[in-house]
Simulated assay, not measured.
Amino acid sequence: MELIENKGITLSEVALHHIKQTAKWAQFLAIIGFVGTALIVVAGLFMGTVMSSLSQLGGSEMAKFPAAWLSAIYIILGGVYFVPSWFLYKFSTETRTALLGNDEGVLTEALSNLRRTFKFLGIMTIIIIGLYVLVFVGLVVGAAAGAAF
């Protein structure tokens, strides 16, 4: 990593207050994310059980979808949801530690976790947009193929 030489940045009390408030909101969102992760994983386990019960009863077509796959998808989604929550939590706790101890190194690590949060969310956004484009193209191709017959 290249070091950029500068005269340093001095933060005002207002800037430090904003950082402290940001850390509080980040911690709130991280905790909500952890709860959401737990709910997604529990729902995955529950949905797998429900789907296998429905398939045994001869339920709908959706019930024929492999229950283990559905559970695995939910658990994977829970893991994906956990990652940015963890980075936000690390940002919030390290920021509070840095501000209490006036430690620039810890604040640098906290900001690195905030960067990781946004990088992860940005990559996930690109992936989701890519999936939308693929689905749209697939729908157009499917409609064109269906119209041709």
Rank of each mutant, 00 (worst) to 15 (best):
M1I: 03
I4T: 10
E5Y: 04
K7F: 00
K7Q: 09
G8N: 00
I9W: 07
H17M: 08
H18Q: 11
I19E: 04
K20F: 09
A23I: 02
A23E: 08
K24V: 12
A26Y: 12
Q27N: 15
L29G: 09
I31Q: 13
I32R: 01
F34Y: 10
L39Q: 11
L39D: 10
V42A: 14
A43L: 14
G44T: 09
G48I: 12
M51I: 15
M51S: 14
S53P: 01
L54R: 09
L54N: 10
Q56K: 15
G58N: 03
G58D: 02
S60G: 01
S60D: 06
A63P: 04
A63F: 04
K64H: 04
F65E: 10
W69D: 06
L70V: 14
I75L: 05
L77E: 06
G79T: 11
V80M: 13
V80Y: 10
F82N: 07
S85C: 05
F87H: 13
L88M: 13
K90R: 15
K90F: 05
F91C: 02
S92W: 01
E94W: 06
T95D: 08
T97P: 05
L99Q: 07
L100S: 09
N102F: 03
D103F: 01
E104N: 01
G105W: 04
L107N: 00
T108D: 12
E109L: 10
S112R: 05
S112K: 04
N113P: 07
L114M: 06
R115C: 03
R115F: 09
R116S: 08
R116G: 01
R116T: 02
T117S: 04
F118C: 00
F118N: 05
K119L: 07
L121C: 07
L121A: 06
L121K: 11
I123M: 09
I126T: 14
I127C: 02
I128H: 08
I129C: 01
I129M: 03
G130Q: 05
V133N: 03
F136H: 05
V137Q: 04
V137R: 07
G138L: 07
V141S: 13
G142V: 10
G142W: 06
A143I: 11
A143C: 08
A144Q: 13
A144H: 11
G146T: 14
G146I: 10
A147H: 13
A148C: 05
A148I: 04
